[in-house]
Structure formats: C-alpha cells, structure tokens
Amino acid sequence: MEVEEEVERLKKAFFIAAFCGGVEKGRIPIEGRSIEDILLDFYALVLLPIHLNAEAKLEFSIDHRNSILDNARIAVAQRENDMAAMLFGTLFEHHINLLLSDSFERREYSDKTISTLIRSLGISAKVTALWEIARLKPWPDELLRKLNLLMERRNRFVHYKWKPEARFNSDTVPERELIELEGVEDILLFLEEVENDHVWCGRKEELLTAFRELSSEDKKTAGEKGVREILYRELTA
C-alpha cells in the first residue's frame, strides 16, 4: 500500500510539474482560453508524444524553490541568520532568473542568448535594466533596497567576505542582521505577484485548483479523450 501511495504521489507531482512547466515556458497558452482547452493542450504536450512513440523522451528540470523556502524559514526561526540569508538569496536569484528566462523564451530569444544574459549580469542589473527589457512589473524602490542588503549579506557569507564586527552571543542578534533579513516575505510576495500576472495571466490559483481537483481516473479518461481528439484533428486537417 505504501508503495502504491508513493507512486500515486509521484504521478501527481509529475503531472503538476509538467503542467506548470508548459505554462511557464509559453508552450501552453492560457490567456483568454477555457480551462478545457488549456488542459487539452497539456495532454497534447505530455501524452501525445508518448502515445505516438513509446520511446519518446520528455525533459524536465526540478524546481527546488519550495524546499529552499521551507529551509530558509526554519533558519530564520532558529536565528541562523547567515544560513537564512544564503537560502533566501539563493531562492530569490532562482526566481528572478526563472522569470527573466521565461519572458525571453516567450519572445523567442535563443537559448544561447538567454543563458549569456543570465550568466553574465549581476543581480542589480537583472532586476533593473534586464527586468525592463523583459517588460516585467517594475520593482518598488524599497524592495530593491531590501533585496540589495540581503544579497550583500548572502555574498559575504558565501564568499567569506566578512567585515570586522563584534560577534554576538546566543541570546542576542545584531540590529544590522535583522535589517538585512527584513522584508524577505515582501520580496517573495512581489515575485509571486509578477509570476502570476506575467506568466499565468492572473489565473495560477484557478488553473492549478482545477488541475488538482481531477482524480487520477479523471486524468486518465480526459487524457485518452484529448489524445483521440488531437489525433482526429491531425488526420482530418
């Protein structure tokens, strides 16, 4: 029973990850479309290649943002401020890179160009100049200030660029460290808003809720129906 439950959990995780990836990369258009048509495109993207070719390979990357966020919040609760800064900084950098990459992919920039831009520019240039080129919602000045403070602390910790300072005992936390961790939830909320608005057209919760509400049997039936409809369209086109 435990094995079957784990297999079912992995199947659900696979379907959700594949669906999110298809939307985020612009392969499944959602603006102004019904949920039924959006799901039909998902089945075409994931199930049709397998239906037509049993040896078809589907490539996916693993999104670690949720696990990084969980560990970052634990670090804050335990006053492990250096670790919290590193984890939140890593989380935000992943999220920023993802939003930029997705935006440029939708505009049909080459993979090489996108990779060069993401790898060559620092975080400050990404959230200002590159952000504007990608036509994403501008950062509020106060959030930019908080992000820069956090990233400076993350970089000091990761690259051993410590400033001389009196170390603190286990019962106190320097005010400067609190300031550098201030606003992390506001930054996270802003990035989620940008993702929902620019990637999901404001429909992320609606679409994921509809997707999750389908039972495994529903997914199987709908998937088979979707494949038949797509094949029919191809044969009669």
Score class of each variant (00 low, 15 high):
4 E>I: 11
6 E>C: 04
11 K>D: 03
12 K>G: 01
17 A>V: 01
23 V>N: 05
26 G>S: 06
28 I>A: 03
29 P>Q: 08
29 P>A: 08
31 E>P: 00
33 R>E: 13
37 D>E: 14
41 D>Q: 06
45 L>R: 11
47 L>K: 08
47 L>Y: 14
50 I>N: 03
53 N>T: 02
55 E>H: 07
56 A>C: 07
59 E>S: 10
59 E>V: 13
62 I>A: 11
66 N>Y: 07
69 L>K: 09
70 D>A: 14
80 E>T: 00
81 N>V: 03
83 M>R: 14
83 M>D: 11
85 A>M: 09
85 A>V: 02
88 F>N: 02
95 H>A: 11
101 S>Y: 00
104 F>Y: 02
110 S>R: 08
111 D>Q: 13
112 K>D: 05
114 I>R: 11
116 T>Q: 10
117 L>H: 03
118 I>L: 15
118 I>R: 06
120 S>G: 11
122 G>S: 08
125 A>S: 13
125 A>L: 07
126 K>H: 01
127 V>F: 00
130 L>M: 15
133 I>V: 06
135 R>L: 10
141 D>K: 05
144 L>N: 11
147 L>E: 04
147 L>K: 04
150 L>K: 01
152 E>T: 04
152 E>N: 05
155 N>A: 02
156 R>I: 04
156 R>M: 12
157 F>A: 13
157 F>T: 13
160 Y>R: 09
161 K>V: 03
162 W>I: 04
169 N>I: 12
170 S>Q: 06
171 D>L: 12
172 T>N: 11
176 R>N: 06
178 L>K: 03
180 E>Q: 14
182 E>S: 11
182 E>D: 15
182 E>L: 08
186 D>I: 02
189 L>A: 13
192 E>V: 03
193 E>R: 10
197 D>T: 06
199 V>K: 05
201 C>Y: 07
201 C>S: 10
203 R>S: 07
206 E>C: 02
209 T>W: 08
218 D>P: 01
220 K>E: 10
222 A>K: 04
223 G>D: 09
226 G>L: 14
227 V>Q: 09
230 I>E: 12
231 L>K: 15
233 R>I: 09
234 E>Q: 12
237 A>H: 08
